[in-house]
């Protein structure tokens, strides 16, 4: 991620329109919330307007700060924001930018928010992250495959630049970074000693690598991606939430099994350098199956809610949408309770 300005530069500009929120961001921008990972954001603007120009000019101008080669192919700009320590600060940052530029960033079809999490998760965990993001969102969408088309869908560099030459990411919801800048100065919760006590390290345990989710549109999306990606990264890299992350994977797989959707995990939800993951259409077919099932469930839920009494007196509800919603809420609660317990022990 090439960012040619500091978070503080941005906050100085935003302070004019939203001073209280900017002060809150300053105060909490390096802090982890319940051991959740830091959040990076990219704003892909699909509109034609010049709303972002004054802010970008104040930060040094488009030629200076929009040097990033990566963007959605339909976007006129991709505004990369410096990462912050928690999802609340990330949402506040977006709200401050909304006020500054004068257009809505949330639930705006002309805006795609990319949520970046440090740490690369594997193919299966990427599938789980993408499905949890989709089913847990407050909006159910129909996608076209080219909604995921970026300037890195196919991207091969010359060997003279060193490092991997094929940086193609395909057309996917979840994609890896392209070895850009990486800020590792965020808290990492880890297990220390035989007592398996919590220790908070000042830095992340890896020097590069992110797992990003495209097409987020709401604060709910930002929070859900942050939660699920944290669990999966901790399960992968042995963080404090490793055990909980593995349990989450198990619970989500059982949920898919109950709805006869387990086969979807085998689709190429992430494009890696393995040829069997290259097929964009196979990913899109799996996404369409998930979309069709989710939209059918939404319709069924709406009908059931209209016939409330018949619903309550019938068999227990097994909507995948409510199950994912409740699963995420349950894990969020467990993490909060555990973190509060730790803070309580620290004070003793």
């Amino acid at each position: 991620m090439a960012i040619k300005y500091q978070l503080e530069d941005l906050l100085v500009q935003l302070h004019r329109t939203t001073p209280a929120k900017v002060d809150a961001i300053r105060e909490s921008c390096r802090r982890s919330e319940n051991g959740l990972l830091s959040v990076g954001l990219k704003i892909h603007y699909l509109g034609e307007g010049a709303e972002f120009d004054p802010l970008i000019d104040a930060l040094g101008g488009a030629e200076e700060i929009l040097v990033n080669h990566y963007r959605n192919t339909k976007a006129t700009l991709c505004f990369v924001l410096p990462p912050v320590g928690n999802a609340h600060a990330a949402i506040w940052l977006l709200q401050c930018i909304e006020r500054s530029v004068g257009i809505a960033l949330f639930n705006n079809p002309q805006i795609q928010i990319q949520v970046c999490t440090p740490g690369r998760i594997d193919k299966e965990n990427s599938a789980i992250l993408a499905m949890c993001f989709y089913l847990g969102s407050d909006v159910l969408r129909r996608y076209n495959l080219n909604d995921f088309e970026t300037t890195f869908t196919t991207y091969v560099t010359h060997p003279m630049f060193g490092g991997p030459t094929d940086l193609s990411r395909g057309m996917r919801i979840v994609l890896y970074d392209a070895y850009g800048d990486f800020d590792k100065n965020f808290e990492w919760w880890k297990i220390a000693g035989r007592a398996r006590a919590l220790e908070i390290a000042p830095q992340l345990p890896f020097d590069f690598g992110r797992s990003d989710v495209l097409t987020a549109t709401s604060p709910v999306d930002v929070r859900n991606i942050n939660l699920v990606a944290t669990l999966l990264v901790h399960a992968t890299f042995g963080g404090y939430w490793e055990k909980l992350g593995k349990k989450f994977v198990k619970d989500f797989k059982e949920l898919l099994d109950r709805h006869m959707l387990t086969a979807l995990l085998g689709a190429p939800w992430l494009r890696t350098d393995e040829p069997e993951t290259f097929d964009n259409d196979a990913f899109y077919a799996a996404l369409q199956e998930l979309t069709a099932y989710a939209l059918g469930e939404a319709e069924r839920l709406k009908k059931l809610q209209r016939r409330f009494f018949a619903w309550r007196n019938s068999e227990p509800d097994t909507s995948i949408l409510e199950e994912v919603h409740d699963l995420l809420a349950a894990y969020r609660k467990v993490m909060r309770t555990e973190a509060l317990r730790f803070i309580g022990e620290e004070k003793k």
Partner: peptide
């Protein structure tokens, strides 16, 4: 007419009468 997106009903408050 097929909408591009619909609200997820799981996010609507579940109120019991």
């Amino acid at each position: 007419e097929i909408p591009e997106s619909i609200p997820n009903p799981a996010h609507e408050p579940r109120t019991l009468p």
